[in-house]
């Protein structure tokens, strides 16, 4: 089945340093995916590889089954800092979009900007940060893309502008069945907006998958410290905060937690993400999972 985005051991190297390495993931069509990770984890590198701004040093990246540069009309992209030609009026930017994209929908672009009360004849350099973000988003949406890629689109926006951006985005997803991949620092909004999650840390993929199974398999367990070791034989402990007698664990469960001495609570998406991000560099979920498999045998 064709994935919206598929990478196979994708890597990018600058000199001796790998900005991204061994990245394998499959993003199904129709998902809204959040890409999270600390600065320098390789988020921008991954996104740039997906839109053909970078060539891989290793591995492969396919968008709708093809090389990124050959499917540009089907992909909308908004880079970090939302670049626009500052001297162009908003209308000029739309003209640019029309001239350079065969699938451009001018009516849609004008309609969305009118809905947001963004004047067409103001130079983009004179718009507010929120308005610039909206213009950049409309530029990407007016292409009628099938996949939309956004690099930290709401960074440096005030809360209202952020919310309005997300409204526009979700509305476009509802209307067109768009697949979306965006990177973000802000974890708080993710469970409202995303249904797929990619966690990148230390240039590697820690996790990639649908959010719902993630929420149902990850639990917060509170219980006696001395039961921790036996728990670790069946389930993967991602994070442990323990006092002398009590353990507070974030666990990736494999099956039900049978030991009644553990109180099982829901883990919020934010907690899960933070736990994965806190894994030491070089450590990855897949490595730990394999450890469990070894022990269980």
């Amino acid at each position: 089945m064709i994935q919206a985005l598929e990478t196979t051991q994708l890597g990018k190297r600058y000199g001796k340093d790998w900005a991204l390495r061994d990245c394998s993931l499959q993003l199904p069509i129709g998902r809204v995916a959040g890409l999270v990770g600390p600065n320098g984890a390789g988020k921008t590198t991954l996104l740039h590889l997906a839109v053909g701004l970078l060539e891989p040093s290793a591995g492969r990246v396919l968008v709708f089954g093809e090389a990124p540069h050959s499917v540009l009309p089907r992909v909308g992209f908004v880079a970090q800092d939302r670049p626009l030609y500052r001297a162009f009026r908003v209308m000029d930017m739309l003209m640019l979009g029309q001239k350079l994209n065969p699938t451009w929908d001018m009516e849609l672009a004008k309609e969305r900007l009118a809905h947001l009360n963004i004047p067409l004849n103001r130079p983009t350099g004179k718009l507010s940060g929120g308005q610039q973000a909206q213009v950049a988003l409309v530029m990407a949406l007016a292409k009628r893309p099938e996949l939309l890629i956004l690099d930290e689109p709401i960074a440096n926006l005030d809360p209202l502008a952020r919310y309005e951006f997300q409204q526009t985005l979700m509305d476009a997803v509802a209307q067109d069945g768009l697949t979306v991949l965006f990177s973000s620092h802000l974890i708080a909004d993710l469970d409202r907006v995303c249904d797929y999650l990619i966690i990148l840390s230390a240039s590697q993929v820690q996790l990639a998958g649908d959010i719902e199974p993630l929420l149902s398999t990850h639990k917060r367990l509170i219980g006696p410290r001395d039961r921790e070791a036996s728990l670790a034989r069946t389930h993967t402990i991602l994070q442990a905060r323990s006092s002398e007698r009590q353990s507070n664990l974030l666990v990736r469960t494999h099956g039900a937690v049978l030991d009644p001495s553990w109180e099982v609570q829901e883990a919020s998406l934010e907690d899960i993400i933070l736990a994965y991000l806190a894994l030491p560099a070089g450590d990855s979920f897949s490595a730990r999972y394999q450890q469990i498999q070894e022990v269980a045998r």
Partner: peptide, 14 residues
């Protein structure tokens, strides 16, 4: 410099 290459090189034109 202004990073607008990230905008114009990801339109549909090579």
């Amino acid at each position: 410099e202004q990073r607008t290459h990230r905008l114009v090189w990801t339109q549909s034109i090579s």
